[in-house]
Amino acid sequence: MSFLITSSPHSNDFGSVPLMMRTVIIGLLPATIAGIVLFGWPALLVILSSVIAAVLTELAVNKIMKVEPTISDGSAALTGLLLALTLSPVMPWWQAALGAVFAIAVGKMLFGGLGYNIFNPALVGRAFLAAAFPVQMTTWAAPMFWRGVEAVSSATPLALMKFQQQTTVYSKLFFGNVSGCIGETSALLLLLPALFFMFKGLINWRIPASYLGSVAVLGGLFWLIDPTKYPDPLFHLLAGGLMLGALYMATDLVTSPLTPKGMWVFGAAAGVLVVVIRLFSGLPEGVMYSILIMNAFVPLINCYTRPRILGYPQKRFGRPVK
């Protein structure tokens, strides 16, 4: 009788990086296609330029660093796709491409490539674009505008809530018929593949659960305090990029904590940041900054939530428990 002896983490269905990346890309396709249908050719152009720029940048950096090309693992394409999904569909294509170049070159390759980056590369690219081109990053299009129904420019549900105290119907938020980033509008199309991935263990369910949970709890708390001033928790969950961020960006294997306890801390703290930024800052949306800020804390979280080695005395905050 032979035993299979390996060190943890034990291999499961998605044992290799290329397979994981490809599966996630396929999982994001429904939301991508929905974005293209909703926002038309400009959205497709943004997506294509971002993905192509991301892959070419990785190839170029590989050449400069004189290492084997790593583009075939699909991580660059995934970063480009995730970045495009967080951009406005009416963004000029070259700005999307520039964001992808920055995301890959500075956000990932300068740190040493896949597995070494501290911050989520796609969000680094988006943060760069948000600081470099604030006007284009906050110019949104109404869904189906390409059919020529009404004016191109339109406010997102979160901006409507923040600046004009208007709510949006939940079914619209759930199915995605609202203005916003290419990939963030439909909660349903993001949730379904993510549920499958969680079931297969590809993304850890603890981070989305704690992230969405803390947003709902804290958002609900403020809603109970003053329902006329603050939006209700369901609106918090469905509007903006929270679903995309919680399901596909906060769960990035490289930039999220390793330990189960750490994942709860990470998600909960990011959720608190989202609610605080949405309700009390000058920005309508805070998912990007919440994840980036928490990315910076990941090494610290890992350090403090290390599981106890079997047989060692129980410790709390580095001191033995009496």
């Binding site: 000029p92 760069f128 600081a131 081109f133 604030p134």
Partner: peptide, 11 residues
């Protein structure tokens, strides 16, 4: 198109 970030501290 100017890159606003470049005249900010981040740039």
């Amino acid at each position: 198109e100017p890159w606003v970030i470049m005249i900010l501290p981040g740039g």
